[in-house]
Amino acid sequence: MSDRDTFLPKFAALALIGAGLVFWARSVLDPYALSIVMFVGINVILAVSLNISNGFTGLFSLGHPAFMTIGGYMTAILVMPAARKGLMLPDLPAFLAGQEWSFLPALLAGGSLSALVAVIVGFPVLRLRGHYLAVATLGLIFIVQSLAVNLDGVTRGALGLSGLPSLTTTWWVYGFVLLTLFVCWRLKHSSLGRTMLAIRENELAAACLGVRVARTRVFAFALGAFFAGIAGGLWVHVVTLISPDSFSFGLAFQLVVMVVVGGTGSITGASIVAAVLTLATEFLKPVEESLNLYGASQIAIAVGVILILIYRPAGLFGTAEPQPLNLIKRLGSRHTSPANSPE
């Protein structure tokens, strides 16, 4: 219990510090830098939520891009002004055409639809193990993509939905980062979370102890999908466009890398690696451009992943949660990479 008692005040303190930083960032950074900050936040949401299934429960899913696509389209269609819908999507079913929601309920609806799909797909697919599940969820990306291309009455086909309002702000992203971190942290330290970890470690033993394995798995999968759907909705309203190719297999790989490198099961690890990786790819770009070696940053990251898999197979943090306050203190005092300071 003591863990929990210190958690809330600590979390609140961190949230406040974070809010201050967001406030500061908004006043000094240009729109480009701010959009990178937003993508850092979105990737944190994605990595941490993928960690629920891949890290806590040991379900190796690659399906996040599929859920982002579902959430992204759903949010975009709900938020779009009805007049614009008439122009862009004349064949939209009547029950969708008239809707004109505000951002928050639309995001939640997008997340919920993703979660619903995850439940429907989850019951059969989650019986699969290890890399079979990985490939089945990979198939899910292709299936959703295929639907998005071909159901042009709802999605406007390959062209995608464009000119969406840029509703997503750093505050929205920050709010959902906090929500994701809060939910995941509480989950990990709750009995349900321990149940998930038990399933990951030894499914048979967990089942013998009365754990409802199938149901817990589907819940983990759906919860991850919910946040992926919300992240999709946020993403779409930063870029102001969604197309069937917006969330592809390459993104799934990046997210898996964040989880695996951060340490499967470590919320802090996944968040830090998500942030570092997003920033690193952005900062590698000028290098790539000046060397005229386009694609070099992807190669560099892939090589890095292989090295980590060889030399630190449990990821940088394992399942452990390094003390966030201490870590930030350390980061504040010296500009060291978090990669050097595990535990």
Binding site: F253, V260, Q298, I299, A302, V303, V305, I306, L309
Partner: peptide, 10 residues
């Protein structure tokens, strides 16, 4: 499996 994804990207 992840390593093979990385090899593929390389």
């Amino acid at each position: 499996f992840i390593a093979s994804l990385a090899v593929s990207i390389i």
